[in-house]
Amino acid sequence: MKPVWALSKLVIKEIFRKKDFYVALILIGVILFYAAQLQFYNVKNIVRYLMEIGLWLVFSFSVILTVTLAARQFPSEIQNRTAAVLLSKPIRRGRFVIGKFLGSFLAGASAFLIFYVLFLAVASAKGGGLASGTAVQTAYLFLLNLMVVAAMASGFSYYLTVSANVSVTLILYLLMGAYGQTLKGRAWAALYYCLPHFEFFDLRQRFIHEWGPISAGLVFFLTCYAAVYTAIFLLLGALKLQRHSL
């Protein structure tokens, strides 16, 4: 497993040594700080608006960073000709796919946790009712969501160019998140069962409106659901790479 971990560490270093993460962090910080200063007379629970905006920013930037990072891994190895150097060493191609995915996921997860802590600090300073159980579940399920989307972008990176991959992954992510439930029972029912339902992992409304955490059984089911989709996308990537002549 040492080569897999070496590859993962490389990807994690990449996200923190390039400016994208810092741009996102500064943007989130500035917007949250500005939103926290707003005062509207006679508006009750204004902190909920702050939480809505804050969580949307944190989730969106984390997904964008993770997708762009995962999507460019293999194409940039090809473009810089480091893929041939790396794969001429004793690392199996399947492990290469896992290492690149794991690095992208852990890098995205680290960025998300930093953004999330910043958000929690601002929201609690404004008196947000941060029920700890729901706050932890919201973060955990979003991490599962990031895992699936990182696997998707990682798997597609062996088939598509960076720009095509980022576009396809983000479009599927947004469409499934917003309209996933409407596909059921229609002519596109196959898509309903084939594509991952990212909306399952979204606990933002529960968190904001303090509806309480979901059951442990459901969390377990969603963990398995995310693991299955992650494995499928990685398998697709590995199958393509096995046949790839470098």
């Binding site: 040492k2 080569p3 590859l7 810089n80 480091t82 150097v85 060493k89």
Partner: peptide, 27 residues
């Protein structure tokens, strides 16, 4: 050991980190 005709190594790493990375690939 393979030396390619041309390769742009990971630009965000230093030579020390690059060699450490490849060494770890060999465990």
């Amino acid at each position: 050991g393979f030396l390619p005709e041309e390769a742009t190594y990971y630009r965000f790493l230093t030579p020390l980190e690059t060699l450490k990375f490849y060494g770890e690939i060999f465990s």
